[in-house]
């Protein structure tokens, strides 16, 4: 036994350690994805008989105006969320200064990360309240009337994204702060001796050292924008008139409230394909970075 173990432990140890995670991944991710893909070809209410409909769900989806609203909103989420990495970087630079009291500032910026997304959503709902909200008070201080952001079909998505951006920026800030701590001091010194200062120093010496971190920040932000669901669920439930849904929310809505599991699965498949593009890009960058290091 021991001899057998000693001979094989080089591959058995990692295999045994990986097994639980691999098992869960296969069941929860791979198997579920494949099953979702399969269900997307059926008309199914989740309990009764499945009826094979072929590509009918996808055909319906292409004619569904709600799908295009979701797609457009996902794009808004994506573009606005991409503000998070640069904003996080700027704040990271700010709180990284050696100034008295910066520790407190750092903690304050860190705050939204310890809150659940749902909590942030609820807080922002109160904040946006056109009668009693903080926003209303601010507008009133200037003698204006606050817009009802969450009831305005043109503004609602922007308002929801703004609330979700808050923790996302804090997250990027933490990533960049870690990156700033790892800056090579001799490299900065070399830059100073070479006469680089201000923006030139930032661009040629500091930022190139943060590319790895920036890559991770952008990738996680993109995935976060695409799977956006919880903030919408808490703040608007997709309203008003379905004007703030995203693909993830529409999928949830169709499957669980309209009992159209086949249709929901079709939306999920489309969302999966969109994400796959970004994930492929992310993995390519990751592999390239590992080879380079």
């Amino acid at each position: 036994m021991t001899i057998w173990w000693r001979r094989h432990r080089n591959w058995l140890t990692p295999a045994l350690l990986l097994a639980p995670g691999l098992f869960l991944f296969l069941v929860v991710i791979i198997w579920s994805s494949l099953e979702t893909f399969w269900i997307s070809f059926f008309d199914w209410d989740g309990m009764g008989v499945k009826t094979w409909v072929g590509l009918a769900n996808y055909r319906e989806l292409l004619d569904d105006p709600q799908f295009y609203v979701s797609l457009k909103n996902n794009l808004i989420w994506l573009l606005m969320f991409l503000l998070a990495p640069p904003a996080g970087l700027a704040i990271a630079f700010l709180v990284n200064q050696k100034i008295a009291g910066m520790r407190v500032m750092k903690s304050l910026f860190f705050m939204p990360l310890v809150l659940a997304t749902v909590t942030v959503g609820v807080i922002f709902t109160w904040f946006y309240d056109p009668t009693f909200g903080l926003l209303a008070l601010l507008f009133r201080a200037f003698g204006a009337e606050a817009p009802a952001l969450l009831s305005n079909e043109h503004l609602v998505t922007f308002a929801v994204v703004a609330s979700a951006l808050w923790p996302q920026i804090a997250f990027c800030m933490v990533l960049f702060l870690a990156g700033l701590n790892n800056l090579d001091e001799e490299l900065i010194g070399a830059g100073r001796v070479d006469g680089a200062r201000g923006l030139a120093m930032l661009w040629h010496v500091v930022l190139p050292q943060l590319t790895q971190v920036a890559f991770i920040a952008v990738a996680i932000t993109i995935v976060g924008a695409l799977r956006s669901f919880d903030a919408i669920s808490v703040m608007t439930a997709g309203g008003p008139f379905g004007s703030s849904t995203t693909l993830a929310y529409q999928m949830y809505e169709q499957s669980l409230f309209s009992y159209r599991f086949g249709y929901g699965a079709a939306i999920a498949t489309i969302l999966f394909l969109i994400m796959a593009v970004f994930i492929a890009w992310y993995l390519r960058g990751l592999i390239r970075a590992e080879k380079g290091a």
């Binding site: 001799e186 490299l187 010194g189 070399a190 100073r192 200062r197 010496v205």
Partner: peptide, 18 residues
């Protein structure tokens, strides 16, 4: 500033811009 001193420096870690 270091860049204005008419000096050049070689660092222990080489400190080349990667």
């Amino acid at each position: 500033e270091p860049g204005d001193r008419g000096i050049a420096m070689v660092f222990q870690s080489y400190a080349l811009y990667p």
